[in-house]
């Protein structure tokens, strides 16, 4: 297991390095940073000085190593737009995005699993059919439409929920949380649901098809033949086996949730990283864009690593594999 995790960490580092290279290429080849910083009115000697100062006259590999070395220490330079350290800007925005993504992912996982089980068990019932139909809207309608419809309904018409922003936030150490105040929680509801909706339909379908398959296996039949109680068969034996592929897909999908959070954050003017990213794209603020890319890649890698480690806890066949894997021969890797 240790060797496996070490290998996965190695692969993850390689992934991050490749993304860093792309981010670095943004600097190098998308516009001239000197022009962006110094502005069109600067003299040639000012520009040369700045160029020297920024180390742009060094060899490209040297620049890249310097970029990586700085990035590793959390230093992504200064934002062109606000002239503040990029790391500070991101750190400010990070909690908002993390909380939104966490709420969105948890909502979709809970709802997706629950509704998926209902669909699996009552496949032909009206309830199951309506769940499947309604959840289809979640996929068919773009995220921004869902968001706007929610805003129209609950903010504009009913005045129940705030239409934008994070509400009141409370600082906890270096973190600001909206989970501790009433207005913060209320503000989370609609963006959370909007973000959850887009993968809910997929999750319902995945969970219900996995669950249906598992419920037809021999060992579930054997559970029934042993006279086990329905709850035990469904949740202890059925769901746990059905969740194996779901964990993988959810892990992979959290990445897309982060990506989709860009749209949700825009619709709800959610002060998160993705909104910062969208703004920086508009202003050509390359250091922020580069830092965002590297950060998102790192989150991806961390989540996938977590999923891999989770596997070991869920599936004993992986945990205790070596002895039997050897006995099963060449097909196993």
């Amino acid at each position: 297991m240790a060797a496996f995790i070490v290998r996965r960490i190695g692969e993850g580092l390689a992934t991050i390095l490749v993304v860093a290279l792309i981010a670095f290429a943004l600097f190098r080849y998308v516009g001239d940073p000197v022009m962006s910083i110094a502005g069109p009115d600067a003299t040639q000697s000012d520009r040369d000085e700045l160029r020297e100062q920024l180390g742009l006259n060094d060899a490209v590999p040297v620049q890249f190593i310097r970029f990586v070395a700085h990035a590793a220490q959390g230093d992504f330079g200064f934002s062109y737009r606000s002239a503040r350290p990029v790391s500070g800007l991101l750190a400010e925005r990070l909690p908002a995005t993390i909380e939104l993504v966490a709420v969105g992912a948890t909502l979709s996982l809970l709802l997706g699993t629950g509704l998926g089980i209902v669909v699996a068990l009552k496949r032909k019932s009206a309830l199951a059919r309506s769940i499947l139909t309604v959840s289809l809207f979640g996929v068919c309608l773009p995220t921004f439409v869902n968001g706007i419809v929610l805003i129209y309904l609950f903010s504009v018409t009913l005045h129940w929920l705030p239409s934008f922003g994070r509400g009141e936030v409370v600082p906890v150490g270096g973190w600001t949380t909206g989970l501790a105040t009433w207005s913060g929680l209320r503000s989370l509801i609609m963006p959370g649901i909007t973000l959850a909706l887009f993968q809910l339909a997929m999750l319902i379908r995945l969970v219900s098809s996995e669950m249906t398959d598992v419920m037809q296996t021999d060992f579930i039949r054997f559970c029934r033949a042993r006279g086990l109680r329905r709850g035990s068969i469904l949740f202890r034996h059925g769901l746990r086996n059905a969740m194996m592929p779901v964990v993988t897909v959810v892990g992979l999908n959290i990445g897309s949730v982060i990506a989709f959070s860009a749209i949700t954050e825009t619709v709800f003017q959610w002060p998160g990283m993705s909104l910062l990213f969208i703004d920086s794209v508009r202003f050509g603020d390359i250091p922020v864009m580069a830092a965002y890319l590297v950060l998102v890649a790192t989150v991806f890698v961390l989540i996938n690593l977590t999923v891999d480690i989770l596997y070991f806890f869920i599936d004993p066949r992986l945990r205790l594999a070596p002895a039997t894997a050897a006995a099963q021969g060449p097909a196993n890797g």
Binding site: T217, D218, F219, R221, F222, C223, A225, R236, H237, R240, N241, I314, D315, P316, R317
Partner: peptide, 12 residues
């Protein structure tokens, strides 16, 4: 049952 390879829950 017939197939002992599939009659037991692999996770317990």
């Amino acid at each position: 049952f017939q197939d002992p390879m599939t009659a037991l829950d692999p996770l317990f």
